[in-house]
Amino acid sequence: MKRSAGEYLFDGFNVLLLCCIMAISIYPLLYVFNSSISDPDALMRSRSLMLLPEGFQLEAYKVVFQNPKIYTGYLNTLFYVIVGTLVNLLMTSLAAYGLSRMDLYGRKTLMKLITFTMFFGGGMIPTFLLVQNLGLVDTRWAIIIPGAISTFYFLIMKTSFESIPESLIESAKLDGANDFLILFRIVLPLSKSILAVMTLYYAVDHWNDFVGPMLYLRSQDLYPIQIIMRDILISSSTESMGAGADTGFAIGENIKYATIIISTLPIMLVYPFIQKYFVQGALIGAVKQ
């Protein structure tokens, strides 16, 4: 079909607008990256928009990589992401399978009680005191156990499990399989894509978790990377930056920018390849709502 002049104008304006949106999305990261590799003195004096780096150094990255706090922070985060996500997946699968059994006595009551927790809770202080009373404060478990199931993700997974044909489960039962076998050998292998989505969502939540560690962790050697980054970026703690007298004060700003890049780059590089799973997750979530 031929397009009229009006159509061309419409499309051209649309593309222009979207290009602006892309530029706005990328620009702050470009600014941060260019600043991170700029010369410290040039950066201090610079009054430009940093579309290109001014001068060049990688000293800041060296300092960041040599900073033991960032190193242990990364390791701790890795632990919280891996162990936390495994616990999440196990607990969520158990809940989703159990409560997708339509013939289960008490299913409706349990579902009501669980869904209610999405809309009402005890709040920050009672939760904090509970975690404290359980003796979890300042242990790694405080980060992993209190959020073992996200009710929202559980509902998504349950809906997905319910779409698995009942006859499949019935016939496995006739063959003498118990529910554990059915869950791990039939239901989960059939739900690979929903598992991928859940893994990504839980993992990103753990990666970004800041409030949990802030409330429950006291020892520096348990801190995840987000707490370390708060100290460097927001509290501007030079001690956390790992910038001693030998590196000088001038490089401080470069270190901040380099820290942002190092903490953001991994996900930025991986994300375009796994984007479809994230989008899938967002969509299932929306349908659920």
Partner: peptide, 12 residues
């Protein structure tokens, strides 16, 4: 491109 900022943590 427009989804990208979503993956940056709040701290950052």
């Amino acid at each position: 491109v427009s989804y990208m900022p979503h993956f940056i943590s709040v701290v950052v």
